[in-house]
Simulated scan of single mutants.
Amino acid sequence: MFLNGLKEKSITRKLKNKVANREYTPSGRPIRTLGILQEKGAPFEIKSRTALAKALGIKENDIEIFTYVAKLPKDQKEIEGMYALKSIGWNAALKTASLKAFVAKDFDVLLSYYTEDRLPLRLISGLSNAVFKVGLIKEEDGLHDLVITTGIGEEMVLINELEKYLRILKIL
Rank of each mutant, 00 (worst) to 15 (best):
T12Y: 12
S27L: 09
S87N: 11
G5T: 11
K164P: 09
L85F: 15
Y114C: 05
I36K: 06
R22P: 03
G5Q: 13
E161T: 07
M82S: 06
H144T: 07
L111K: 13
I137E: 08
Y68N: 08
I65Y: 04
N21P: 04
E163C: 04
G57E: 00
K59R: 15
K18I: 08
F102A: 00
L3V: 12
Y165S: 09
Y68A: 00
K71Q: 12
A104I: 08
E39A: 14
K18W: 07
F66M: 05
Y68S: 01
A84R: 12
I152P: 03
L123W: 13
R49Q: 13
L172K: 15
G151S: 09
K47I: 05
R13D: 02
E116M: 14
K54M: 06
T50W: 12
Y83S: 00
L121E: 00
S10R: 12
Y24C: 02
T33A: 00
L3N: 14
T150E: 01
A93P: 11
E139N: 11
F66Q: 00
I159D: 00
I152Q: 04
I11V: 10
D141M: 14
T115R: 15
E23W: 13
S48K: 12
E39H: 15
A53S: 14
I65M: 07
I31W: 09
G135T: 04
G126P: 09
I31G: 02
T25G: 07
E45F: 04
N91L: 03
L37P: 09
V69S: 00
Y83V: 03
G81W: 06
L121P: 07
D75L: 05
E78F: 01
K14D: 00
K7V: 04
V109W: 02
D62F: 05
V134P: 10
Y83N: 03
K105H: 14
E140F: 12
P26V: 01
S10A: 04
R122N: 13
L172F: 08
E161F: 05
S98E: 13
D141I: 14
T115M: 07
M1G: 14
K59L: 12
S87C: 03
A93M: 13
G89N: 09
L6C: 10
K7P: 05
T50F: 13
L72C: 00
K100H: 09
L169V: 11
M1H: 15
E64R: 15
S112W: 07
L34V: 14
A84F: 11
E78I: 01
A84E: 08
M82I: 06
V147N: 08
I36P: 06
K74I: 11
I79V: 08
I152R: 10
E155C: 01
R118I: 10
K18M: 07
A84Q: 11
S48F: 01
L146R: 12
D145A: 01
I148K: 09
L123A: 01
D106F: 09
E154A: 02
Q76E: 06
I11M: 06
I152T: 10
G41M: 12
E8S: 11
K16G: 05
E45N: 14
K18D: 02
L72N: 07
V69K: 08
P26M: 00
R32M: 10
L121N: 02
K95P: 04
L15Q: 09
L158N: 01
K14E: 02
T25L: 11
G151M: 03
K74E: 11
T149D: 06
